Simulated assay, not measured.
Amino acid sequence: MNWITNYVRPRINSMLGRREVPENLWIKCPETGEMVFHKDLEENKWVIPASGFHMKMPAKARLIDLFDSEFESLPQPKVAQDPLKFRDSKRYADRLKDSRIKTEQEDTILAGLGFVKGVKLVAVVHEFAFIGGSLGMAAGEAIVKAAERAIAEKCPLVIFPASGGARMQEGILSLMQLPRTTIAVDMLKEAGLPYIVVLTNPTTGGVTASYAMLGDVHIAEPGAEIGFAGKRVIEQTLREQLPEGFQTSEYLLEHGMVDMVVHRHEIPDVMARILRMMMKQPPLDTQKKLPAPALEAVEPA
């Protein structure tokens, strides 16, 4: 036992009234270096007030902020855990356990059914803190089930990807989620229902190669990194210097890969206007004041 560390130092700290301060009370802006109090950042929807830099927003917080009021959380489908018994520097089963403790989620996808500015929709959100928002069997199954629920409810599907791509610990089983989610999007389109993608930072890899680029409308948050391979990999492969701002939302808007770049605060209003037009519903401004709609229980197909 180290008596200085275990006995003397705690006694001195208690005498001087020192208290341990959590490390995450202040958040540093990656763009300007400004320090922002975490409560102020949360109240501003994880957008740095001065610079407007869009930080990663937790999936639970995004769903709560998106919907008008209470919403129905869709259940997380059960799938095989660690089917390949994968291990690198750490067992995959242990990585799953650690991520579930850290995020309080079963996997990277959260989905909910509710109303956004009076428009009923199913929303799917990636949690990047869960193994980089990677697409595995659980995530793929959750997206498919969300699409099926949207079809059953006859309402649009909106997805907020934030991912590094496919989950390598599940190998080919992860890659099979690319065609499965693509088929789910096709099912929505066959039913004549809108599918909107809100691209957040980052959206890369197999997620970009599948459902993230199949939307009827693509909205992107400012400054989001969007692409398949990383900038460094592309430069090493092509042996060329890429343009400034390559793979950002603004660059992709300029080159026709996304339809609009929208500030996080304005996304619910913009989304509702687009969906009202696509669903042939009257504009919100011209409607009379109606009581808030209530969700009805509908059995999934």
Rank of each mutant, 00 (worst) to 15 (best):
P75T: 09
A138N: 11
A272F: 04
K60H: 12
A297L: 11
S174W: 07
Q177T: 15
L41G: 08
V116G: 08
I27Q: 14
F246A: 13
T204L: 13
A272V: 03
E221K: 05
R100C: 11
G206N: 00
V197F: 01
E296T: 13
G136L: 06
W3H: 01
E225P: 02
R167F: 06
S69M: 03
V233M: 15
A294G: 14
P77G: 03
D68W: 01
R273Y: 13
M257R: 05
A212K: 03
K78E: 13
F37L: 12
E127P: 06
F130W: 13
H54D: 13
I109P: 00
I219V: 15
E190L: 13
A191G: 07
K78Q: 09
A146L: 06
T237G: 02
Q287E: 15
N24R: 11
Y211T: 02
A147E: 02
S14C: 13
V144R: 10
I27C: 14
E266I: 03
G227N: 12
A166I: 07
Q241M: 04
F86H: 12
F71T: 03
E225W: 01
H255T: 14
G52A: 01
I226P: 01
A272C: 06
G112K: 08
N6F: 15
M57V: 05
V21L: 12
P161H: 08
T32L: 09
H263Y: 06
V124I: 12
K288C: 10
P49D: 05
M279T: 10
R9Q: 08
L188A: 10
A150G: 07
F130A: 15
G215L: 00
P291L: 04
E43A: 14
I101M: 09
R273V: 11
R273T: 14
M168V: 14
E72K: 12
G133K: 00
N44S: 15
I64F: 10
A59N: 03
L175I: 05
K78D: 08
G230R: 09
A138G: 13
E141F: 00
K280N: 15
E141P: 01
P10G: 03
L96E: 13
T200P: 00
P30T: 09
P293I: 12
S134G: 12
D40C: 10
F71W: 04
E250A: 07
A139Y: 02
V207A: 03
G165D: 09
